[in-house]
C-alpha cells in the first residue's frame, strides 16, 4: 500500500491567529484554502519555507466560515453561519457570486467527486444541492426534525457524498442519518446513531454532541458516522471519540468504536481509497488522529495532534494529511516505506 498509518509523522506545525474551521487543498500542491473564525477565507502554502497565510478580500462572509470546496483549482465556494454561499476567484482572491442559501447557520459544505455538485447543510435542517458552476439550486431535501425530542432546536452538522457521487448522507444532532440518491433527491436509507447524542435530563438539562462527520467507503457500501460518545459532564467534551460504521444498505451497524485513548469530538472522517483504513480526527482541548481498519474495527494507529482539528484534507496519494483547527495547521505524512533497493545481481536479472 502507498500509505502506512504506523509511520505517521508530523512534518509541519504552523500557528495561525484564528480558528480554522474548514479546508480544501488545491490539487498537487501544498496550497490550502481555509475558512476561519475571522469570517474570512485564507490561502497558505504549507510547503513554503516560511508559510504565510493571505486573506481573501472583497465583501465576504459575516460570520464563521464553516465549509470550503474547490470545483476547479481556481474556483472556491464557501459556506458560513451567515447562511451565504460565496463563489471566489482563487487567484484574485475576490468573491464572484453570493447566494443566500439557508435561513439558519450553515454547518458543512461538500462537493461531488466530479466537482459539479455542491451539497450544503444548515440548522434549517435542509440539505441543498447546488450547481457548482452556475450557483443554481438543484434541489433540497430533509429528513431531520427541527426540534429534538426534548423540545430544543436540533442542528444539522454533517453531510457527505459517496465516492461515486450517487449518494449523499446527512446526519443531525440526535443521531439520525438519512441517505439520499443525489440525482433524484429520493431517500434510499436511514441509520440511527443515538449513542452520539447526549441528553442530560437531570443535572444540566440540555444536550451535547450529535453527528459531526460522515464518510462513505470507496465501494459505497459502508457509511462511517462520527461524533462523541455519551458524556457524563456535558460542560466538557468529556467522552471517548466515537465512530460507528454501518452497512447502510442493510441497515446494520458493523462496528461501534469508542476511542479509549482520546476523549474528544470526531470532526472529520476519511476512508483510504484502498479501504485499508478509516481516518478520524477532531479534538477537545487537544487534537487527535486515529486510523482503524474498516474491516475489523481495530485501531491501526493513533496519535495526538497539537490542536483541536476541525477538518482535514488528504493528498492524491492519501499518504499526507493537512489538518486545520484551533490556531494551527498541521501536516502529517504517513508514507509507506519504500522497498529496499534491489541488489545489483538481482537488478541485472530483472
Amino acid at each position: 500500500m502507498a500509505s502506512d498509518p504506523t509511520k505517521l509523522n508530523k512534518t509541519k506545525d504552523i500557528g495561525i491567529p484564528s480558528i480554522a474551521m474548514c479546508v480544501a487543498r488545491i490539487p498537487n500542491s501544498g496550497r490550502l484554502i481555509f475558512g476561519s473564525s475571522d469570517f474570512k477565507l485564507h490561502e497558505i502554502d504549507v510547503f513554503a519555507e516560511k508559510p504565510q497565510s493571505t486573506a481573501f478580500g472583497g465583501e465576504g462572509h459575516q460570520s464563521y466560515v464553516t465549509g470550503v470546496v474547490l470545483p476547479t483549482p481556481n474556483v472556491a465556494v464557501s459556506s458560513s453561519y451567515d447562511g451565504q454561499l460565496i463563489w471566489w476567484d482563487v487567484e484574485k482572491r475576490e468573491p464572484t457570486r453570493k447566494v443566500k442559501a439557508h435561513e439558519l447557520w450553515m454547518r458543512r459544505l461538500v462537493i461531488s467527486p466530479d466537482g459539479k455538485t455542491i451539497a450544503s447543510v444548515a440548522d434549517d435542517m435542509q440539505c441543498k444541492l447546488w450547481n457548482a458552476e452556475t450557483g443554481e439550486m438543484l434541489r433540497q431535501f430533509s429528513d431531520h426534525k427541527a426540534m429534538t425530542p426534548h423540545d430544543f432546536p436540533s442542528m444539522l452538522h454533517a453531510v457527505a457524498f459517496s465516492a461515486d457521487g450517487k449518494f449523499i448522507a446527512t446526519g443531525d444532532k440526535v443521531g439520525h442519518v438519512a441517505i439520499w440518491e443525489a440525482t433524484s433527491g429520493s431517500k434510499v436509507g436511514t441509520v440511527e446513531a443515538p449513542g452520539l447524542y447526549t441528553w442530560d435530563p437531570k443535572q444540566r438539562r440540555h444536550s451535547i454532541g450529535g453527528i459531526r462527520a460522515l464518510a462513505f467507503s470507496p465501494d459505497n457500501k459502508l457509511l462511517a458516522v462520527g461524533g462523541i460518545g455519551q458524556i457524563g459532564n456535558i460542560d466538557h467534551l468529556d467522552a471517548p471519540a466515537r465512530v460507528e460504521i454501518f452497512d447502510w444498505q442493510k441497515g446494520e451497524r458493523k462496528h461501534e468504536l469508542n476511542n479509549d485513548k482520546f476523549k474528544a469530538l470526531v470532526e472529520d472522517l476519511a476512508f483510504d481509497p484502498a479501504s485499508q483504513w478509516l481516518l478520524s480526527s477532531g479534538g477537545a482541548g487537544d487534537g487527535f488522529v486515529t486510523f482503524v481498519s474498516p474491516e475489523t474495527g481495530k485501531v491501526i494507529h493513533q496519535d495526538k495532534l497539537p490542536m483541536h482539528v476541525h477538518q482535514l484534507a488528504l493528498n492524491e496519494a492519501s499518504d499526507t494529511l493537512f489538518a486545520v483547527g484551533h490556531h494551527k495547521i498541521v501536516v502529517c505524512e504517513f508514507k509507506a516505506t519504500d522497498p529496499p533497493p534491489a541488489a545489483p545481481a538481482e537488478a541485472a536479472k530483472s
Partner: peptide
C-alpha cells in the same frame, strides 16, 4: 435555569439554552 457552564461547545449550548 441550569446549566449554562459551557466550557465545551459554548455555541451549541447557547443555541439550545
Amino acid at each position: 435555569r441550569a446549566w449554562w457552564d459551557s466550557h465545551g461547545e459554548n455555541f451549541e449550548t447557547h443555541r439550545e439554552l
